[in-house]
Design a protein around this nucleic acid. Structure first.
Lengths: 210, 210
DNA sequence: TTGGCGTTTAACAAAATTGTTAAACAAAAA
DNA sequence: TTTTTGTTTAACAATTTTGTTAAACGCCAA
């Protein structure tokens, strides 16, 4: 082992993520990534072979984590509305912590649509399958207007994620500071729930258990 | 004048737009743009000085057109719900015609957030100002649950545009052909209206007059 | 018909970025 | 101690992409 960090590979990935997901340098060069991690640029090629492969690894990790998080919540045994409320709560919080993550995902997939195909074929559980039954029950009980689980999930995800993608636009149009924007996003938790269910969002207690 | 097209500049822009907005080659090089337009690469520098300036011009044009379209609809004297229904209708249709346009806008602005600042300072009419009064009336008359015009507009735009940004993901997860995806988007018109207003979308008659 | 002018092109130059290699280095194992 | 192994680096090479220039071209007006 060399003199440096126990796990430089991990370090590089973490710093790259900060660059991409937090700072929003979506087109960071290998040099910039190396600088952020405080290592030589060649190291990135040593560990990841090429810049493209590194991006692929990052994308895979992020998508997996995202899917896992969704599965934990949507696959839990919470009552439907509580489940959705939890999803909104956690998704918005996560979005505040990593404001450019969605941007990264969207643009990486746009660059290489075939990657999402590879990724999806591995794990075939769709998020909408996890809520389909409960949603149909709610509809049968007239608790919510008829809607397919696919359209429902798109609504949910759109309402949570779009404001992140449009962050610079929203901040500029409405003259929001970072703090004001954060507040705007937090307010959205209730807004999103009301938009979907037309009623107030319930209190969330056992967030940690998920 | 040379032997070629009367207006090569326009031709280049149009072909570039096809590349970016329809085909989704978001990172097209000047060479690819030139190929698409069937001209020499140097022409792009002749007309636009640099690739960056060309992108800036394209972005400006597109944003202006978008803003103008929104203003026409949201600033019209239609009743509130009809206005929103028209907005949804036209926005979704436009999204089907130019499936990667939103992607282009989002990623260009992410690359240069300062550009959106320049752009917004020119014309200061925000879309939410155009509907604020009507929205407040609806709320006062208890036709819709209380919500700020900013949050309302974000909901509306998110529901219309997010599915475009997530096109590759949605198509893959649900195994949709292009035709199925198109149908999915068209279905969303009603879905979006119902999600926002909790009632059926009215028929639209005088779409052309806008 | 000729000279000017905007347009178009090919060839060239420059810059930015990625990828490769061989050698130095530290630490653990032999 | 020497060897081995994995890590790190500097220097170099290749590639990709952008930007420049000077000359050719065709049309129109003088």
């Amino acid at each position: 082992m060399g003199i440096e960090e126990a796990n430089t590979e991990k370090l590089i990935k973490e710093k790259a993520k900060i660059l991409f997901f937090k700072k929003g340098f979506l087109n960071a060069t290998t040099q910039e990534i190396a600088d952020e991690a405080g290592v030589n640029r060649a190291l990135i090629h040593y560990y990841f072979r090429s810049r493209e492969q590194m991006l692929e690894i990052l994308l895979d990790e992020v998508l997996l984590e995202k899917k896992e998080r969704a599965r934990k919540i949507l696959g839990s045994d919470l009552p439907f509305k509580e489940k959705i409320a939890t999803y909104v709560d956690i998704t918005v919080d996560y979005g505040i912590a990593y404001p450019y993550l969605e941007n990264f995902i969207i643009s990486e997939i746009a660059r290489h649509p075939e990657k999402i195909k590879d990724f999806c074929s591995v794990n075939r559980k769709k998020p909408n399958d996890l809520i389909k039954k409960q949603l149909e029950e709610e509809i049968a009980n007239e608790k919510i207007a008829p809607i397919s689980s696919e359209q429902f999930m798109v609504n949910l995800i759109a309402l949570c994620n779009y404001p992140l993608l449009a962050k610079p636009v929203l901040q500029t149009i409405h003259g929001m500071t970072d703090a004001a924007y954060r507040k705007f996003l937090l307010e959205r938790k209730q807004i999103i729930f009301r938009t979907i269910f037309n009623e107030e969002m319930p209190e969330l207690t056992k967030k940690e258990t998920l």
